[in-house]
Design a protein around this nucleic acid. Structure first.
Lengths: 197, 197
DNA sequence: CGAATTACCTACCGGACGTTCAGTTAACCC
DNA sequence: GGGTTAACTGAACGTCCGGTAGGTAATTCG
């Protein structure tokens, strides 16, 4: 299955990144030293620099993977036609699936603070995504499909507050698929948790 | 208005804590050095240690202030009677008000990772709060007031995902009061964002 | 005034941090 | 076996980190 690689066996960039991102999420990016990481990997600190030029590059790779996934869904959504609320539901559902599929990467992304250029670039892309969502909610409200008594910007943030909360509690397991979680999110977000309406 | 203090004027623990928590939120706790903080305060690093025995103590003070606020609301909620869904709404609304009132402290709390004893203690109290919420949702579902087609634990997490998202976007300003935001949260959470039902 | 109180400064410590450099080891291919 | 490729080691580096020791400055109270 796995393509046999040449040279001495060990980590490649991909497998190293997996471990790094997991550790960054457990202890925080700033709270994880390269020595912590090397210990977890079972190799020396300097060996990490064979695969990646700096600690920050690991962060860049991770957050880009998350952002690329989200923008794929956004682009997909933009090419749909039909009512805005249906496109919004598509975006919400797709975002949940990306969150679930790339959980460690998105987790790292959502905790970025903006201390460095890499982090600020990630925040800028995040804001762009947020703007897309807000515009979609505004349009759906203009079409009369979204409650008009709440500011669209607030609605957008609340819905994606729900979506993004997945990084705090969703853990992949056999049984509860990501699609089921996406259904739950859409139900609660669009219809509310109360019965009887 | 302010009680005149004795001794040399300057920071006291309270005013220092305000600045510290704000900076921790901007750069992350681990990403903020005591020298960063001293520069922001306009005093030397060692002067900080006149007010507080360690960096971690600043964190403890902050997260405890957030948790105390949340548990006050929870205790208040537990003493109510009536249907569980009404108590749940009270808890949600009250939590939003605490978030808004103690925003910097709650922000710091919600980013704690569990690297130290202080952080693990905070996480334990958070989990206790989460359990209260989940139990309330379960009860409301048993009383037939909450949609039965979503796992109560998931519902609880989604609703508080919405609530907790406030730390990412809510900024106090004249005009939009915290009570208005609490209304918006309750509307979307309980009735959904879609019109017509 | 002097005592009490409170906030602050200079100078420093040991250790942890991210990163570098010059080699070494283990696999594959001919 | 020899060449190629890729992963890794060990010892250092300059810097920044959280924290300490001992003395000083500015205010209030009597």
């Amino acid at each position: 299955m796995t393509t046999p690689r040449r040279g001495r066996p060990g980590y490649d960039l991909e497998s190293l990144l997996q471990v790094a991102v997991k550790l960054f999420n457990e202890r925080g990016y700033d709270g994880t030293s390269m020595e912590d990481l090397s210990r977890k990997l079972g190799i020396t600190k300097s060996a990490i620099y064979h695969h990646v030029p700096s600690k920050e590059e690991l962060l860049r790779l991770a957050v880009d993977r998350a952002l690329d996934g989200l923008f794929e869904v956004a682009d997909e959504t933009a090419q749909l036609d039909g009512r805005a609320i249906d496109r919004l539901e598509h975006l919400v559902r797709g975002s949940v699936l990306v969150l679930a599929d790339r959980l460690p990467f998105v987790t790292l992304l959502l905790r970025v603070r903006g201390n460095t250029k890499v982090e600020r670039a990630a925040l800028a892309r995040r804001r762009e995504f947020d703007r897309l969502v807000t515009d979609l909610v505004k349009q759906a409200e203009a079409e009369g499909d979204v409650r008009p008594d709440v500011d669209p910007a607030v609605t957008a943030r609340l819905v994606f507050g729900m979506v993004n909360s997945l990084i705090e509690w969703y853990r992949p397991r056999r049984g509860s698929s990501a699609a089921e979680v996406a259904d739950a999110v859409c139900k609660v977000a669009f219809e509310g948790l109360r019965t009887g309406s």
